[in-house]
Design a protein around this nucleic acid. Structure first.
Length: 892
RNA sequence: GGGGACGUGGCUCAGGGGGAGAGCGCUUGACUCACAUUCAAGAGGUCGGAGGUUCAAAUCCUCUCGUCCCCACCA
């Protein structure tokens, strides 16, 4: 399996497709193979079959994949259920638009033929989305894939509908609903999006019937006056007290309508009198119900005026508005027209202004379903990450209203209700043979379909086989975590909770991880109409799936929006390149010859070699530290932070330092047996660390890590199924970590001094280190590393080395003095100035520390560890101060 | 009218009670045997403003200014 040579650059395109097939063929994504293990389950938020996946999907699925891959490596029996949503209204709209381009109207086509066409569409986009998901690398269990409109899900929908109906939680009736005149269907409240629009407030004079004057009403919808059946004023409004109970003649219609008093009216707004149009405004309807006012429907489902609008019948609502105002003006009944801005409801899918209409629809009674779901969150059975979304959820659920679920569409779950000519309504799981009332067989099924979110609400259990008591349902419900963006908490998350708790008796998931939205580089929402969307597939094609995944994950903080920027993608690409080359370095050094297979096992952490060097112990320490931190961050759903830690460890610690340290042992010359020992040990550490990093990295960047893994010498067959690393306590070497920190500090100091005089790297220069006590021993032991990494030749490390006069100086930790003796090259004045500046800065910090340590409050109340740290800092500063002063004296 | 988020180096953003970080950009130097998709050194911020809590505030609280989002049937 392992190969010695790796291409000089990582080519994602060559690796990814093959790698995904390798995982599929190995059956690694399939759940149920670890029957004795705890389960970890996620159901995918089913993408709509309307089109292709966007960046939000890429983020969302990457997060889920990270969690699933991580838990799988931890040994859980993981199940990630894939599937898609039929997306009723959205898909119907898209297909209709598509057909319209061919000159075909869905009405001409007829229901059956149209639905057939939508299934064809579904087939195409199902394949496309599947391809996209696979390209992204999702480790879903394809054998369990579901579709909201498949047989099982449909059975679940019917079961829930019928059962809720029988419990009187689903009812049918004539109520005011939101109607989209373009989609020609009812909508639920949350499918209506309110947007402020500039409009006008028209003040109209309604003549009193007795001819004694006018009452003025203000409206944003003058055309609706044609359906007015009353005028309302506030009962306490002195201006109108005498008018209550009298009548006005409705202009244009010449209908006599009453003036009523109602608390709803705000006397401070407009004229303080409201025209009442009960059939076209929910508030007016409420007023009408309180005062027994008539309902007159003057706007139809096509947003045109009905016959009841008399002379205006047939006019579009906006054309009618103009005409009504014109006619009123001609009659001298318009008092004034003011500019006015107010919120108008728009159809979520087509942006058309919705029309409130009274219509016969099906509804779900929500309160009884919502209460247990509210309690579940209060009790902590479900928690939101980040927790602030709990309040968003409460806010909606506490004020929940009944849900209009019927849609006048063709694409979706047909409502399981049949009507008999005798008036009987039959709601049942399957089509009834005959009417139980009259025995008639001429039954007609309700032509409407259900809101697409009705089936989505059942997703966590319908996908596991419900209503059958399947083994999957028993084993994997409830699921562990739901990952979704904040924009569908109401549409989906809350409703899943309602249905899950009600029908399963248990919450559908324990954690709801809320993501933000992926925006464009300017912070705008990515949208088709703006044309600013970035296709995830294009990024994958250009940079690889791992780069896309890493970019999205690191750009993300739970619940916060992120901007998708090209620069970040490039940073991700660079990281991929770094990973690849670090691995190449390790692999190249394992092989005995160019084509030979590597024969070095990684170091066994349970049997550490006794000759581990200080750099070895340091990198093992950092590796264990990183492993523990990454695991902790994943447990806290801090995926972005976890990925950043891996990045930092791999790039800064491993590549920038350890790989450089390792070169000394790999390439040094000397006695053969000793060299062989050095090399063997170093290779062991290199492989161990690389191996561990690949495991840590795998959930985030599965392709490149799997590909590198393929080249590593190991026994486990595939990284996807390898064990998540532990951070054993015996790999903790805090002392060596501290000692190496000093070595690094010294190297940095020398490099800094060299750059002061623009010494090019590679050009050797002498370095003298004066170090007290133990520090001197550590540095002496690492002299080869220091010499190599800062081109020190010769390097002197002594407790009391002779101080050179002509030298650049740096004072670092532990009282270590660093000298770069360069007789003749140094501008002593500049050097003195530089040191003085440094001293001034140091003394400033020293004073701050001393102020703290002189404060009785600090000494009495701060934790001992903090005080001790501050004391150490003071000693450190004082030591440096002394040495700097001394050096300045020497320089004169 | 409610609710929430954000305001941190030039840009985009992490972080979050004990002397601030990253990526990109910028300056300087290097084609050093894994990588120029790189390496090394550096400049750059009183963490929006005011007050409070605390021994200690960028971090918690209150107010304030500014940006944005969600919910809401004032015509």
């Amino acid at each position: 399996m392992a190969k010695a040579t790796m291409a000089p650059a990582y080519d994602p395109a060559a690796v990814e497709q093959r790698c995904y097939q390798y995982w599929l063929q190995g059956g690694y994504f399939r759940a149920g193979c670890k029957v004795d293990q705890e389960t970890f389950t996620i159901v995918i938020p089913p993408p709509n079959v309307t089109g292709s996946l966007h960046m939000g999907h890429a983020l969302n699925n990457t997060i889920q994949d990270v969690l699933i891959r991580w838990r799988r490596m931890q040994g859980y029996d993981t199940l990630w259920v894939p599937g898609m949503d039929h997306a009723g209204i959205a898909t119907q709209n898209v297909v209709e638009k598509h057909l319209a381009e061919e000159g075909i109207s869905s009405r001409d086509l007829g229901r059956e033929a149209f639905v057939e066409r939508v299934w064809e569409w579904k087939k195409t986009y199902h394949a496309r989305i599947t391809e996209q998901l696979q390209r992204l690398g999702v480790s879903v269990d394809w054998s369990r894939e579901r579709f909201t409109l498949d047989e099982g899900c449909s059975r679940a929908v019917r079961k829930v509908f019928v059962d809720l109906y029988r419990r009187a939680l689903i009812y049918r009736g004539d109520y005011m609903i939101n109607w989209c005149p373009r989609c020609h269907t009812a909508l639920s409240d949350i499918e209506v999006e309110h947007e402020d629009e500039s409009s006008t407030l028209t003040h109209i004079r309604y003549p009193l019937t007795d001819g004694s004057g006018f009452i003025i009403v203000a409206t944003t919808r003058p055309e609706s006056m044609l359906g007015d059946t009353g005028v309302a004023v506030h009962p306490g409004d002195a201006r109108y007290r005498d008018l209550v109970g009298r009548t006005v003649i409705l202009p244009l219609m010449n209908r006599e309508i009453p003036i009523v008093a109602d608390e709803y009216v705000d006397p401070a707004f407009g004229s303080g009198a409201v025209k009442v149009t009960p059939a076209h405004d929910p508030n007016d309807l409420a007023i009408a119900e309180r005062h027994n006012l008539e309902l007159i429907t003057i706007i139809g489902e096509d947003a045109r005026m009905t016959k009841a609008a008399g002379a205006y019948a047939g006019l579009d609502r906006y054309a009618c508005r103009e005409k009504v105002v014109e006619d009123l003006q001609a009659l001298g009944l318009v008092e004034k027209i003011e500019d006015y801005s107010h919120a108008l409801g728009h159809c979520q899918r087509c942006r058309t202004v919705v029309e409130p209409l009274i219509s016969r629809q099906w509804f779900v009674k929500m309160k009884p379903l919502a209460e247990p779901a509210l309690a579940a969150v209060h009790k902590g059975d479900i928690s939101f990450v980040p927790s602030r979304f709990t309040r968003v959820y409460y806010n909606w659920v506490e004020n929940i209203r009944d849900w209009c679920i019927s849609r006048q569409l063709w694409w979706g779950h047909r409502i399981p209700a049949w009507y008999c000519s005798c008036g009987e309504v039959i709601v049942d799981y399957a089509e009834p043979a005959a009417c139980p009332g009259c025995g008639g067989t001429a039954l007609e099924q309700d032509p409407d379909v259900l809101d697409t979110w009705f089936s989505s609400a059942l997703w966590p259990f319908s996908t596991l086989g419900w209503p059958e008591e399947t083994p999957d349902l028993k084993r994997y419900y409830p699921t562990n975590v739901l990952v979704t963006a904040y924009d569908i908490i109401y549409f989906w998350v809350a409703r899943m909770m309602f249905m899950g708790i009600d029908f399963m008796g248990e919450v559908p998931f324990h954690t709801v991880y809320i993501t933000g939205l992926v925006r464009d580089a300017q912070g705008r929402k990515m949208s088709k109409s703006l044309g600013n969307g970035i296709d995830p597939l294009e990024v994958i094609a250009g940079y690889g799936a791992d780069t896309l995944r890493f970019t999205l994950i690191t750009g993300q903080a739970p619940g916060n929006d992120q901007r998708f920027r090209q620069e970040n993608v490039e940073a991700g690409r660079n990281f991929s390149n770094k990973i690849w080359n670090a691995s190449r370095f390790v692999l190249m050094n394992l092989a005995a010859g160019e084509e030979a297979a590597p024969d070095f096992a990684p170091l066994n952490p349970d049997h550490l070699p006794s000759d581990l060097t200080r750099p070895d112990r340091w990198i093992l320490h950092r590796c264990a530290e990183t492993t523990a931190a990454v695991t902790g961050l994943l447990e806290a759903y801090e995926l972005g932070e976890a990925a950043r830690l891996i990045y930092e460890f791999l790039w800064s610690d491993f590549c920038d330092w350890y790989v450089e340290f390792s070169k000394y042992y790999l390439y040094r010359e000397g006695e053969a047996a000793a060299i062989e020992l050095d090399r063997r040990r170093t290779r062991g550490v290199l492989v161990y660390v690389l191996d561990t990093v690949m495991r840590l990295l795998h959930p985030f960047m599965p392709f490149i890590s799997e590909e590198i893994w393929r080249h590593l010498p190991h026994r486990e067959s595939a990284l996807v199924a390898a064990a998540w690393p532990a951070a054993p306590a015996h790999l903790s070497f805090p002392a060596e970590a501290k000692e190496m920190a000093l070595v690094q500090e010294v190297i940095r100091a020398v490099r800094n001094l060299r750059s002061q005089v623009q010494l090019p790297p590679g050009k050797a220069a002498p370095v003298i280190l004066r170090a007290p006590g133990q520090a001197s021993a550590w540095l002496a032991q690492e002299r080869h590393q220091i010499a190599k990494l800062c081109f020190a030749e010769p390097l002197t490390v002594e407790r009391a080395a002779t101080k050179p006069q002509q030298a650049l100086t740096a004072i670092v930790s532990e009282g270590v003095e660093v000298y770069l003796p360069l007789a003749g090259v140094i501008d002593l004045e500049a050097e003195t100035a530089r040191l003085q500046k440094e001293l001034a800065q140091l003394e400033k910090e020293l004073r701050q520390t001393e102020v703290k340590l002189n404060s009785p409050g600090f000494l009495a109340k701060a934790p001992a560890a903090v005080v001790a740290k501050e004391e150490t800092r003071r000693e450190e500063y004082r030591a440096r101060q002394g040495k700097l002063r001394e050096r300045l004296r020497e320089l004169g």
